[in-house]
Amino acid sequence: MLLAIGGIALVYERWIGHALIAIISLVLMVYALTTGAILKGRIKKRSPRNVFKLHKRVGIYFGALILGSFIYGLWIRLQHGESILSSVHGKLGLIILLIAFLQLIPSLVLKNRARYRGLHKMMGYVLAPILFIDASWGLHNGVIGGTKSLVLFHSISGGLAALALVWIILEMLHPTDKGLARARIASYLAAFLITAGCWIAGGYNYLTVYGSQVKPVILAGPHPWAHAIVMEAKEHIFVFLPLIALTLSITLSVLNRDTFLHDPKFRRALTMIACLALFMVLLMFLMGAIISNAGQTGTEALK
């Protein structure tokens, strides 16, 4: 993920601070979800560290970064003389900020948190997909500067698939009785998102829009290699990804609970496959960002 952020940072500068903070927030959110699940006993505790303190600290960092990212986003909009909170990305950002504060403030202020825990847990799980959708949306807007709905759906599907793959990896690293059932759900989600959202929607866009509108602009622009190498590689390498996601789903669906709980070799193998799929999703993100940027610079050069 850090590799992908670094790569994007080298290509784009305007909104990169906002994007970097948001992506660090994503990492912290995954960590907060993991420590929260350990506290509830869904994930087995391995280290003797005080998990509650860790969860609290990560939550504070997460809230601070979300606030920072929100202010940064507003600042960028004002700098360009654009109206604030008019976009879906901005509105989702505000919702994320509100949920983050509703998560954080009562947890720090209330002395008896027992009655608040159910809501805290629910909001935590709701926050994750919203944050991934908003980050994918923001990445799309930042790179393309527009809102082509099909490409947006393609990007969001990739972001959510990455979240589902991280979920599978966590379930494999911390096996519990119900972990296999949850990992299966995550794998079905990942396979569906990668097949329907990324493969079919992305393929349709590639066949109907990219070839006739974007490809000629990139080839005529200052970075023709973005099509000749990056896009040509992306369109074909991608075909491997649905196969890997489907394999992961099939393997998890036939895996029995005893093997899942007591055979570390099996879990390690599945973790490796999930990591491979996650690496490919992030690679596709990076390649997509380079292609979209080449399209944008090509359009500007032709003006």
């Binding site: 000749a228 190498i229 040509e232 590689a233 074909h236 390498i237 491997f240 890997i244 394999t247 393997t251 070799k265 099996f266 390690r268 193998a269 599945l270 490796m272 496959i273 491979l276 490919m280 690679l283």
Partner: peptide, 25 residues
């Protein structure tokens, strides 16, 4: 042998990615 095949899956996928990139470059 799931250990063998998962390792092979990673090796083959990465080799193919690098191969495709090399040919295109």
């Amino acid at each position: 042998d799931i250990g063998l095949w998962s390792t092979t899956l990673i090796a083959v996928t990465l080799t193919m990615i690098l191969g495709i990139l090399a040919v295109l470059i």
